[in-house]
Design a protein around this nucleic acid. Structure first.
Lengths: 146, 146
DNA sequence: TTCCTAAATGAGAATAATTATCTTTGAGGA
DNA sequence: TCCTCAAAGATAATTATTCTCATTTAGGAA
């Protein structure tokens, strides 16, 4: 899992002739490992354990760098912090404002529906590049009774 | 136009037994007048002309207050600033990352499509409250040649 | 393998948006 | 008109992020 994402990451950087540094690998893996679309702060905390020497500024710079080169995506919520996502496939987000939890939501039928709609309906004065749904609401757990 | 939105706003506050202050009215109207989903800073600048005595802190407090009471909505982009929207009907956003322009996109057919989809497709462990599309791309203008 | 160079990193200061504090003011009910 | 509590003003404090600059290093060349 970790080695897989690391190998993928190194390969991607090398394809683009970008330097593979231990910091870039560690920060990318932190985003992969931290499931809940982490903030820069989450990543900094996480790295303290295994990579205590990575500077705060480096985390911000590397995150920007990785977004710029398409290896991470920014995720925006109503809160002030920017969050990051290593999943690059066409997907949407379930978001709970109370708990600030984000989960990926991927469904081929939904994507097909949206593609069909936007193929038919041209928007005046706008070229569509990407469509993302933010589905706001509440997560709940079924309490098992046994 | 301005008087209409002002009357609507006053009525809304009074219905909820919330105080109608000149600052609240001015800040709300600034969001209505400033079309491009303004930031707090945009609002502060705009208010300098006609309401030079409104404090910066007040703008932030009132914006939070109005979001909390459902009179404004927060809009977050890839940039760092929070932005505000006075349009409360079910709508989506066209967003251009290069120019940071946001436009509302409202289409009954799209909303019907989404409602139908989410009525049929129940998401496990999640109650949907609101669905918002962020449509990323580029605005363009047809250059007229005559 | 070693050297070289531009690019990346580390450390910490600087910035800027937002929040907090605390005193004064005023909206709106009595 | 008065009273009271919430709202606003002024400004200090906070905090996420950016900047600066000296040092280090990845990766290509010799």
């Amino acid at each position: 899992m970790k080695t897989n994402s690391s190998a993928f990451f190194r390969k991607k950087l090398q394809e683009k002739s970008l330097k593979v540094t231990p910091q870039r690998v560690a920060i990318y893996e932190a985003v992969v490992e931290l499931k809940n679309h982490p903030t820069a702060e989450n990543i900094i905390d996480y790295l303290k354990i295994n990579h205590p020497n990575i500077a705060v500024g480096t985390v911000y710079k590397v995150l920007d760098f990785l977004v710029e080169h398409g290896l991470l995506e920014k995720v925006k919520t109503e809160k002030d912090f920017m969050r990051y996502d290593a999943v690059l496939t066409n997907h949407h987000h379930l978001y709970c404002a109370e708990t600030d939890r984000i989960e990926d939501y991927e469904d081929d039928e939904l994507n097909a529906l949206l593609n069909a709609y936007f193929k038919k309906k041209k928007i005046k004065h706008f070229n569509v590049r990407d469509i993302k749904l933010q589905i706001t609401g509440n997560f709940y757990t079924n309490l098992k009774t046994h």
